[in-house]
Design a protein around this nucleic acid. Structure first.
Lengths: 128, 128, 128, 128
DNA sequence: GTGGTCTAGACCACT
DNA sequence: GTGGTCTAGACCACA
């Protein structure tokens, strides 16, 4: 699935949460897909089940997955129609901070935008 | 200078570090500017001096400020010519992750780029 | 009959028990009505028969239905004359807690009562 | 503060969460008040610190308290101005279900409303 | 001192 | 089998 880096500044918990977000957002995991059971992932990553559990609960609360006791955990439907403005606002704050730091490091505004555009897989030049 | 929000999930330490980064990156604090002494900021924010001290040390290590013993702390010069590719790579990873999450939430790629562009204060094409 | 929502925090078992209570309390199911057999409901809801079985047993014990071996399960008579003060006391505690939370959230006492009144389908004064 | 009933259907975790909500909603704990440290409450209730911690985190996420690492946990400000319609809707669903059950048990609609009115400390008859 | 993370391992209810 | 709760106890960063 992914790997845990014990040396990272990120906590194991956070790495698992973010790891799943990446997988979902990048389309590797699709809505309805079953994700590993707490115990399975626990032994796969050699991480305590409690930690996995906590991560799953977090992802559940944030709406990324849902967990049905006795059945397993599944990737939630993609939030359609109404982009959650609350979450969006939070992400905008984060992205702003990072974008400004990149600019400060010497990147031109154009270059920052280019990197983001590449990141989400869009050609900015051709058919913009 | 800025304010400490105890209700934030961020620790006070983190808020101070990030707060200074924002101020520097946004140009409020310019290279060479003197920043408050540990004692002053401590009483201003009613925050434990140890915490301020630690934050300054962190900012120093990351190259945002430099502390001259007995003289005070100053905003470091902007790293001009040579964009630190290591830091840049890390930031790119972060910004990619966030941009993809925004897209997943329902924003079009165009809208994501627009938000970033606004974030760093640029008009994307000419006068869009 | 009703639907099972796997994404709910409620267990399937709980959803079935509560679902029947709602149907009975709202009058959709009336005393004496036959409810589906375990097998039927199991295939209708695609839920494990054991779970249905357990839910029926629970409803039986709480006096909402009665199961006649070999004949099926039926909605029990409404407990007319003697309101079970034990159950009532428990419900009062629960409703009090929720009402106070609604008030704390910013609803006036009037508004809280209005919502409850609407909930049970009554006009509070005359034709409000 | 309050007591834990090991025999209750409610989990310890839930009892703690609900216990604090009661205390806040009833005014025993006021915004800004400090609540016991995780360790203190843990030894007071002879409940594992992890469980207390989990409860505090839940209360934090729901906006009832806020926890500042190294400082302690405090009752959050009362949500003013904008009654959170999401939470309100959830509570309305709950209160409806209970009110209907009370009615089914034999209470008149009037009696149900009376109980709720008493619960939140309002006289329905005098100055309605 | 504070909150927070993580592990180890038991136990429970639900499917 | 599944998710979820709870305990016991270590450890960390922050204040």
């Amino acid at each position: 699935m992914f790997e845990i880096n014990l040396k990272s500044r990120k906590s194991i918990f956070e790495q698992i949460v973010d790891g799943f977000k990446e997988l979902i957002v990048s389309g590797v995991l699709k809505p309805g897909d079953r994700i590993p059971s707490v115990r399975d992932l626990s032994s796969q990553l050699t991480v305590n089940p409690n930690t996995i559990q906590k991560a799953y609960r977090q992802l559940d609360q944030e709406g990324w997955i849902y967990s049905a006791s006795g059945l397993g955990s599944y990737v939630a439907e993609r939030p359609e129609v109404t982009p959650d403005e609350g979450k969006l606002a939070e992400l905008t704050v984060q992205i702003t901070s990072i974008a400004k730091q990149m600019e400060y490091l010497g990147l031109s505004r154009e270059d920052v935008l280019k990197r983001v555009a590449e990141a989400i897989g869009e050609r900015r030049d051709s058919d913009d």
